[in-house]
Design a protein around this nucleic acid. Sequence first.
RNA 1: GGGGGCAUAGCUCAAUGGAUAGAGCACCGACCUUCUAAGUCGUAGGUUACAGGUUCGAGUCCUGUUGUCCCCGCCA
Length: 585
Amino acid sequence: MKSILEKLKNSVSQALITAFGKELAKNDPLVVAASNPKFGDYQSNVALSLPKQLKQAPRAIAEQIVNHLQVNDFCETPTIAGPGFINFTIKPSYLAAQLSAIQTDKRLGVAKAKESQKVIVDFSSPNIAKEMHVGHLRSTIIGDSIARILEFRCHDVLRLNHVGDWGTQFGMLIAYLREVYPEALTTADALDIGDLVDFYKKAKIRFDEDEEFRETARKEVVKLQAGAEDSRHAWQLLCDQSRREFQVIYDLLDIELQERGESFYNPLLPDIVDELEQKGLLKEDAGAKCVFLEGFTNKQGEPLPLIVQKSDGGYNYATTDLAALKYRIQKDEADRIIYVTDAGQANHFAAVFQVAKRAGFLPENVEVEHVPFGLVLGEDGKKLKTRSGDTIKLKDLLDEAIALARADLETRLKEEGRKETKEFCDRVAKVVGISAVKYADLSQNRTTDYKFSYKKMLALQGNTAPYLLYAYVRVQGISRKGNIDFQQLRQDSSILLEEETELILAKHILHLGEIIEEVERDLLPNRLCQYLFELSQKFNQFYDRCPVLQADEPQRTSRLILADLTARTLKLGLSLLGISVLERM
RNA sequence: GGGGGCAUAGCUCAAUGGAUAGAGCACCGACCUUCUAAGUCGUAGGUUACAGGUUCGAGUCCUGUUGUCCCCGCCA
């Protein structure tokens, strides 16, 4: 289904051409949603951009555009306002017809992408032998939402978990375990993940302090990379164990992800260095093989290097990222590659992308994007930590949110004298707790840091997951109370938009497609959150002023349809954020 | 020192170069015999850090200043 925005853009472009000639075809018609409802539903700012080109006053230009506009099948007569804005108001009858049209559509009228792309979303990426912590929260949640949105638009999405399962730290860990706890290297599940993390910390201390141990660890890396069987087996056990732990969290968060760790690219690393050598990009500096970057300089104004092979012959993450990029372009045939990592890695990705371009394996038609996000801060404005200053484990953080949601539910049940089963409480606590954490994260513009507050994210009022979930529950409450089967209703499509709140709600429902396309382009899920929050507000206003079940026909059916469409829009929108809905809460 | 990000209401945050900068929270007030008041309505709150510039039009783009956070050769 063609969106209203698209129809208007086409109409304005057409009017521009008929009024001023073919050369205007390349001008953007500058149609956007109106900045203020009093200006109507949409506005075109194009007349304001043309005075120089056309040597006429903006209002005169606007008049000629309006005279040539053919929009009366769906739009009231456009008006000109201020210095030359053209304002459009959509006819209620057209809105009603659009709503009827999307009623039977699972996609609620949201178009599929014109061209389906192969898109890789690289997100989450924890490290083997470490627990997932708060630092993985944003990548995991934002990456998943981006993947869901692209999938919904019918792109072919490959969700990759680029886990840290390779490199120096494994030599270190295996060498240490050989000394203090050799069973762990031969027996599955000999120690749990918490122990593993402890051993990792101790190994790191040894590594930093003890020259001899450092040497042993290096040899262990070499053994591992050479494929020595016992090392390989030990490594495999460590990875399996970590993987099971990660899966607990991914299950809790309802996130699917394909693991393809750094080790996967290991065999490709020598070729990457050779290729850079052949292209004449490689220079040796202090024993390390580097590509010197354009536009990145140190304090003396000298170019900064991207090190692709260390002086000891080992490879590092830059090499792996280059190999991964090349593989994803050539073997996965990706059209668009999205890296969801913290903003601190911006320089690194800019460097990797530059080198890939200069090496010739990153063609113009492949889009690579670093999608950065800010830090999760505590209430004190500093990086979120436990009281004792330790990193917060992701599992603990999520469990806490669920526990708080449960406590809140129990208080309410008591106050209202309600009795619910344990299954009900478990389910509500889990959905509310997890949704609250996800929504709090996604509703912020991801590029900035944000303050983590259980109290705010779990609040029942305001721009929070519980508020949105409640709007959905209200609709389901209507259907229970009135014994309404919304499925049945969809056969009957008479919609009347008479009350102001009905009209406002109807217009908002029809904006979903525009918002999703925007998020697909800019990868800012907070826009979708904003949309859903506003949808909930507009629904609550409608609910407040328009009785549904008590209304006479034909209003009753019309309002039921409007309520159902609201709920389905909420459910769909929330699902794209990775959030499920509840029938009661 | 060099590079980058950020700075918007008391607090947490929005805002494609477009009209009078918006929400939520908190505060103050109004509305439940009516589909879950977990709601709705209203009042108040701003020199968009500061100084210039570009533009018909700047919170948004450019330059500088201040504050703050991040990155800066063999961790990822």
